[in-house]
Computed example of a mutant assay.
Amino acid sequence: MIEIFLSASVPLPQRNRIFFDTADILAIRESIKALVEVILPVGRITCGGHPAITPLLALFVREADLSSDHVTIYQSRLFNGKLPPELENFVDVRMTDAVGNDIGRSLTAMRQLMIASRPFDAAVIIGGMEGIYEEYDLFRASHPNAKVLPVPTTGAAAAIVHRNGGYDEELARERTYSSLFRRRLISSKRLGSG
């Protein structure tokens, strides 16, 4: 089973405008849909429970008639009472302890547990804001031999990670997300190079 860590969010206008102004919301949506359709039949997706991403995952799992037990969602107890109702659609929801009332420290604690939770084959980065950078750094430290696949056409933090990380320029033009994920995640895993 292929293990994919998904680092994704839909940028908010009231946060750092560099993310919101460059985000391609349709591309974020379509890339999440393609990731679900390509990965869930052969693997698992693990991610944090972002309020815009969780509903998309629930929708696309249902539309593709796939099993939601191949999705693991982490969420901090700090957000109890504010959680997306779509969490109920998932079997494997893991709640992590809050660190007082500190959002930053609570999210860091959740991210550390989530990223250390299993031996991931790859991380896929879609859209995103500041938290993407922390997840990227934690992932690289915990899984130095795993593939990292930023999807720069989704804009926001994913485009910045792609540009700053010296990733393949082909990714900057790729919008056929299903083909991209099959080629870069599934084929490479079967060949033992992922």
Rank of each mutant, 00 (worst) to 15 (best):
L66C: 15
L66M: 13
L66N: 06
S67Y: 03
S67Q: 13
S67A: 14
S67E: 08
S68F: 14
S68D: 15
S68H: 07
D69C: 09
D69G: 04
D69W: 04
V71A: 03
V71R: 01
T72S: 08
I73R: 01
Y74H: 14
Y74Q: 03
Q75E: 04
Q75Y: 06
S76H: 09
S76M: 12
S76E: 09
R77A: 05
R77C: 03
L78E: 00
L78V: 00
F79P: 00
N80Q: 12
N80E: 15
N80H: 07
G81S: 11
G81R: 00
G81Q: 02
G81H: 01
G81E: 00
K82D: 11
L83E: 05
L83K: 14
L83V: 13
P84W: 09
P84E: 15
P85E: 07
P85D: 06
P85W: 12
E86W: 14
E86V: 07
L87G: 05
L87T: 02
L87V: 06
L87C: 10
E88G: 11
E88L: 10
N89Q: 08
N89E: 15
F90G: 05
F90T: 04
F90H: 05
V91I: 13
V91W: 08
V91E: 14
V91M: 10
D92Y: 15
D92P: 05
D92I: 07
D92E: 11
V93T: 05
V93P: 02
V93F: 06
R94P: 03
R94G: 00
R94N: 04
T96A: 05
T96E: 00
A98C: 02
A98R: 10
A98Y: 02
A98P: 10
V99S: 01
G100P: 08
G100Q: 06
G100A: 10
G100Y: 01
G100H: 08
G100D: 11
N101Y: 08
N101I: 14
N101F: 13
D102Q: 05
D102F: 00
D102K: 07
D102A: 08
I103Y: 08
I103D: 09
G104N: 15
R105N: 11
R105G: 06
R105A: 12
S106V: 02
S106K: 00
S106F: 03
S106A: 09
L107G: 00
T108F: 11
A109P: 02
A109I: 01
A109K: 09
A109Y: 06
M110G: 01
R111M: 12
R111P: 03
R111T: 04
Q112P: 12
Q112E: 11
L113N: 12
M114K: 12
I115F: 07
I115N: 15
A116Q: 09
A116D: 14
A116H: 08
A116F: 14
A116R: 13
S117G: 07
S117E: 15
R118D: 15
R118G: 04
P119Y: 11
F120H: 03
F120S: 03
F120T: 04
D121S: 05
D121K: 04
D121Y: 01
A122D: 05
